[in-house]
């Protein structure tokens, strides 16, 4: 199909220039920190500073492991904590939020509208609002200083339920009807009929849930005081506060911190965009 309206040549040049400049602005800090992660110490403190690494080395990464193995809690422990918390939270969130999204998307029953509106409403304030009372509730439930103080709220995250419910609405009712005629119960319909049809949505939930749990520094600092349970994201803030002697290790840690989410996004991008097509709030 031929577009009816086209930009002028100059228009195209301007658009490409703007997009490139912004792309550089967005990428530069990330590229710079990747470069720094591979720089030997003398290159880290060159004047004037240089963006690109000349003699790449893995020393910063070995330093990071060494530095953290001599600290009170070994580096591998922080990494384990992060992987454990992110994995369980992500898995739990995808399963439990999808399970709840299915009846909200496909059935009408007393309270269904109210519950969904409550979820949409909760998108309108940040999690910070609930942190203080949540702390008290955690204390009463004796969850403080356990992995569950992070995992359980992550599982109950609202954005994922919202996206999943919106996406599930497009599944044709006939799929569900025919499964019901075959005698499947609601749980089976959810697992065997609905879930295989919303793959883009659960990949999106994996991305968002992982991003939020892996990068979080605020809630772990609030609910965990036992050093041995803290995640890598918090350890990163300590290393970073270590000043210039640790600049190389901090850059190496930053690279380890940002890679997993980026890889997940590269693998899921088209599915995420597909899911966001139904992400609108209709009135």
């Amino acid at each position: 199909m031929k577009r009816k309206i086209n930009r002028s040549l100059w228009g195209n040049v301007i658009v490409i220039a703007v997009l490139t400049i912004v792309a550089i602005f967005m990428a530069l800090p990330l590229v710079y920190s990747i470069m720094n992660a591979f720089k030997p110490l003398d290159e880290l403190f060159l004047f004037p500073p240089r963006l690109f690494v000349r003699r790449p080395t893995l020393k910063n990464f070995t330093d990071l492991f060494y530095l953290m193995s001599t600290s009170f809690v070994p580096f591998s422990r922080y990494l384990f904590n992060s992987i454990f918390i992110s994995f369980l939270s992500t898995l739990g969130h995808v399963m439990i939020a999808s399970m709840a999204a299915y009846p909200l998307a496909k059935h009408k029953f007393p309270g269904s509208k109210f519950l969904f509106n409550l979820v949409v409403f909760s998108l309108m304030f940040s999690g910070y609002v609930t942190n203080i009372p949540r702390f008290i509730i955690m204390a009463k439930l004796r969850l403080l200083d356990t992995y569950f103080s992070l995992i359980l709220p992550y599982i109950g995250a609202t954005l994922g339920l919202f996206l999943m419910k919106q996406f599930m609405e497009q599944i044709p009712d006939s799929y569900i009807e025919s499964a019901r005629i075959d005698g499947a119960n609601e749980f089976k319909i959810w697992w065997h009929v609905v879930m295989p049809n919303v793959k883009p949505a659960w990949l999106t939930l994996i991305l968002f849930a992982f991003r939020d749990t892996w990068n979080d520094t605020y809630t772990p600092a609030l609910y965990l005081h036992n050093e041995a349970m803290k995640p890598f994201s918090l350890a990163l803030t300590y290393i970073q506060q270590g000043g210039f002697v640790r600049a190389g290790a901090a850059a190496a840690a930053a690279v380890l911190m940002m890679l997993p989410s980026l890889i997940i996004f590269i693998l899921t991008q088209s599915n995420v965009v597909e899911t966001m097509k139904s992400a609108g709030i209709k009135e």
């Binding site: 800090p29 892996w214 990163l236 996004f265």
Partner: peptide, 11 residues
């Protein structure tokens, strides 16, 4: 990418 790696803003 920057929104995705929000924990590394300290760079």
């Amino acid at each position: 990418a920057p929104a995705l790696s929000s924990a590394v803003f300290f760079i």
